[in-house]
């Protein structure tokens, strides 16, 4: 967003002790950040026994593929089942949620109608309600209506994304000049034709940003599936790993299963995350605007 200001700046080229110190601190921060991940990546290549007896960079043979085999065959391949569930919850939830957020955010920004700002205030209120405080009431409501312990009990509350509407409104302000809409109106195009024909395409980067934020949000959610689901076949990865982890005290081989499961769960996320940096920055910049 600030590409123009970034290129225009000049940097002092002096190399002083303070500059060396600053870089040392930055490298230390990066080491702190990466160390747990590097450790996880080494741990998944070892047997459970070697985990106790070998140092971080000591190997008695490379066991990653044996461990992966054990992960996917445990309890008739339930891990893959959990993984697909996570993909479905996060994928569908974020796809529908981001689409509806863009529609609503666009309408809030570009149309004028009675009570608009008051309605938007209600949406903002939704942003500030802690999701974990909502989970118990959602559970009671789901129990009363009989949807508890179903796919929908997790999916439907996940779709609703008031923060997405807030972001979409800011993106609509930044990406779509009012002149474009005026020109379309003069040409006689209806509002919805303009939205789906012209504006939607201009909103695509915003859609991608909201989709990514929501996808990670749903994938990371633990409290909602925990209260809603008791059927293991409906668990997302997080809940499944939590269940396995509860057994490590009795059966230490679960240490390895949990770590390999965690490894398989985060590697694709990290890769996608790095590839989509620019959308994250766009979202963070817009999200912290006042």
């Amino acid at each position: 967003m600030s590409a123009a200001t970034r290129t225009a700046r000049s940097r002092p080229t002096r190399v002083g002790p303070s500059r060396v110190l600053a870089h040392a601190v930055l490298i230390a921060a990066a080491v702190y950040t990466l160390f747990p991940l590097v450790w996880l990546f080494t741990a998944v290549t070892k047997t459970t026994g070697d985990l106790y007896t070998t140092g971080m960079f000591e190997w008695n043979g490379f066991r990653l593929f044996d461990n992966l085999g054990a992960l996917f065959s445990e309890s008739n391949g339930i891990y893959l089942h959990w993984y697909l569930n996570s993909v479905l919850y996060a994928g569908f939830g974020a796809l529908i949620g981001a689409f509806l957020s863009v529609c609503a955010g666009y309408a809030f920004e570009k149309y004028s109608f009675a009570g608009k700002e008051r309605l938007f205030g209600v949406v903002l209120l939704g942003v500030l309600i802690p999701t974990s405080a909502l989970a118990l009431p959602l559970y009671l409501l789901a129990s009363a209506t009989g949807v508890v312990n179903t796919f929908w009990a997790v999916l439907i509350p996940s779709i609703c994304n008031p923060f997405g509407v807030y972001l979409a409104r800011i993106f609509a302000r930044g990406y779509i000049p009012d002149e474009v809409l005026e020109a379309a109106r003069v040409d006689g195009a209806g509002e919805l034709t303009t939205f789906f024909g012209i504006s939607w395409r201009l909103m695509l980067p915003g859609f991608a940003t909201i989709f990514l934020f929501q996808f990670i949000g749903i994938w990371n959610n633990f409290f909602l599936p925990l209260v809603m689901l008791s059927n293991q076949d409906l668990f997302p990865v997080s809940l499944g790993l939590y269940n396995w982890n509860s057994q490590v005290a009795l059966e230490p081989q679960f240490y390895t299963l949990v770590m390999v499961g965690a490894f398989v769960a985060i590697v694709p996320l990290i890769i996608v995350f790095i590839l989509t940096q620019r959308f994250w920055r766009a979202g963070l910049t817009a999200g912290s605007l006042k």
Binding site: T33, L34, F222, A265, I266, L269
Partner: peptide, 14 residues
Amino acid sequence: FIPHAVPGLVAAII
């Protein structure tokens, strides 16, 4: 920024 892609539960496990 990378740890932000790691789910809270997995971060807690590690």
